[in-house]
Amino acid sequence: MDNSRAGFIVSTVYLWIAVVAFGGILAETIIIYPNVFHDVPASLGTSVEFMVAAGPADFFPPLGALTVVAAFTALAVLRPARKWVAAGLVSLLLGEFLFSALFFWPRNDVMFEEGAAVHSAEVLRQTAWEFETGHWVRLAMSLLTAVLAFAAFVRYQEHRRGALR
């Protein structure tokens, strides 16, 4: 497989994964979160009962890891689009992964692991509000990652077309 074909495949896969990740977070925002946060703390308990077989914690960590692998692969392969890929990787690692680990994971523990057995209703409501508010930052960073992946895709395709002429 020549470099041009490999670059096309890598740029397409990276873009696809970044867009799917953003779409998943957007769908979670529109479909799942209104149910999870509509009547805290009761809705938190209902959510835990409902998401027994699978939930966001089963979907997003593997998808996030796949996105990171795709971004590092794109960084190595898509030399003409490297600055766009690098910016997307920074957005992904800082704005999505690190922010999630430092901000969301502790709040997930409070709301869904410890819950009302450990925390008052007021603490759970405050934690849910913080989570929902911070989620808009995560959603924006996911959008930025997808946009930068698209910019990398376009830049690489422009370079590829120029090289093929």
Rank of each mutant, 00 (worst) to 15 (best):
H119G: 07
G95S: 07
A116L: 12
L75F: 09
V19K: 02
K83D: 09
S100I: 06
F131P: 00
N35F: 05
E130C: 00
F153K: 04
A152R: 00
R138A: 06
A57T: 13
L75G: 05
D109H: 13
L63F: 03
S91K: 06
R161I: 08
P56M: 09
R107D: 03
T67V: 07
F50I: 15
A86F: 14
V10I: 14
S11P: 02
V110A: 14
Q157M: 13
E114C: 01
E113D: 13
A163R: 14
I31E: 08
A101G: 15
W129K: 12
L139N: 12
R165C: 00
A117N: 11
V147S: 05
L139P: 08
V123P: 04
N3H: 11
E113P: 00
F8H: 11
D58K: 13
H159P: 00
V40Y: 04
W84G: 01
E132T: 12
E28M: 12
V20Q: 09
D39A: 13
T12F: 08
L93G: 04
V118W: 08
K83A: 12
M1C: 05
I31Y: 07
T73C: 08
L63G: 06
E130F: 10
P106L: 07
P80F: 05
T133H: 08
V90L: 11
G24A: 12
Y14A: 15
V77P: 02
L66K: 03
Y156C: 03
W136V: 12
T145R: 13
V69Y: 02
G95V: 02
A81Y: 00
F150I: 09
M111G: 00
A21S: 09
V68F: 14
E132Y: 02
R138C: 03
I32K: 05
G134M: 05
G134L: 00
F60M: 10
F72I: 11
F99I: 09
I31K: 06
L63Q: 07
T145V: 13
H135L: 07
P62V: 10
W105G: 00
T67D: 04
L148N: 04
A163P: 03
L78F: 08
L44P: 06
Y33D: 13
L93R: 08
G134A: 06
F112N: 04
F37I: 09
M51Q: 14
R82T: 05
L144C: 10
